[in-house]
């Protein structure tokens, strides 16, 4: 229990009559990689956004490393600074150079001295082979390169948890591989990741656990290999069979 990093209990969220989340329970342990799967509109993105408080919840409790971050009195900006997040697209700021993008939060939110932030930023860019683009604007980069920059931007300040929301779904197929390789490297390095994904093969390979979301609740969860190869619930089976 001591290494439980994220704990969601009874998360509810509706938009008018539309109940997107109907009481979701979900745990993520430290250094664990959890893949959220489910059809479009099953609430995966909404659930991820509730975790870093970009989406308010109607009911439920969210604990991050034991702290109740769903308490309305909590400093939301402070919580978000502890969580890295990458979305489908439009992650990078087009008016800032690549290195400025990567170091922005470190400088503004974490008050890291510029020299140190730049050094770390260049190191990370070098680790993904993009140090040559440090001074370029994001529009010079391919979609895959942009997503990789967005990912290293999210981890520059060593967040406790990394949220990835369909980071490859807006990419051309030939660019998906390089982004997944980076996520795999982070997972191998012990980063705690909660990701929504459509890439089942990738989920099976990288995720420790797969959580199937349908109709706003967790229908089935378990070790990746087991849920994807031998689903127990009829709804999971139906969803997976539609993908083949």
């Amino acid at each position: 229990m001591s290494d439980r990093l994220l704990e969601l209990r009874g998360i509810r969220r509706s938009f008018g009559d539309h109940h997107v989340l109907r009481g979701v329970d979900l745990d993520v342990d430290a250094h664990e990689v959890v893949a959220l799967i489910g059809a479009s509109g099953s609430g995966k993105s909404t659930l991820l956004r509730t975790v870093n408080l970009l989406e308010p919840i109607d009911d439920g409790i969210i604990r991050l490393a034991g702290d109740d971050i769903s308490d309305p009195r909590v400093d939301a900006d402070g919580v978000r600074a502890r969580i890295g997040a990458v979305f489908q697209h439009y992650n990078l700021f087009p008016h800032l150079r690549v290195l400025e993008n990567v170091t922005l939060a470190a400088r503004l939110v974490h008050r890291m001295p510029r020299a140190e932030a730049d050094r770390r930023g260049r190191e990370l860019l070098a680790s993904i082979g993009l140090d040559g683009f440090a001074g370029a604007y994001p529009d010079r980069l391919s979609g895959g390169q942009q997503q990789r920059v967005a990912i290293v931007r999210a981890i520059l300040t060593d967040p406790q948890l990394l949220l990835l929301d369909e980071v490859t779904s807006a990419l051309d197929p030939e660019l998906v591989g390089e982004v997944l390789a980076l996520v795999r490297a982070l997972a191998d390095g012990g980063t705690t990741i909660l990701m929504a994904t459509h890439e089942m093969a990738f989920a099976r390979e990288v995720a420790d656990r797969v959580v199937f979301l349908d109709g706003g609740v967790v229908v089935e969860e378990g070790p990746a290999a087991q849920v994807l190869a031998d689903p127990q619930e009829p709804r999971t089976r139906e969803f997976l069979s539609r993908l083949l």
């Binding site: 870093n52 970009l54 900006d77 402070g78 978000r80 600074a81 969580i83 997040a85 979305f87 697209h89 439009y90 992650n91 990078l92 700021f93 087009p94 008016h95 922005l104 939060a105 503004l108 939110v109 974490h110 967005a150 931007r153 999210a154």
Partner: peptide, 27 residues
């Protein structure tokens, strides 16, 4: 300015004011 830009800035921990000043207004 695309709403995702605001979202990306807030996700990094930038405050509303910082997001306006550094991300939204310049664009």
């Amino acid at each position: 300015v695309h709403p995702s830009q605001r979202l990306a800035a807030r996700a990094l921990g930038l405050s509303h004011g910082q997001t306006m000043r550094r991300i939204v207004l310049p664009q």
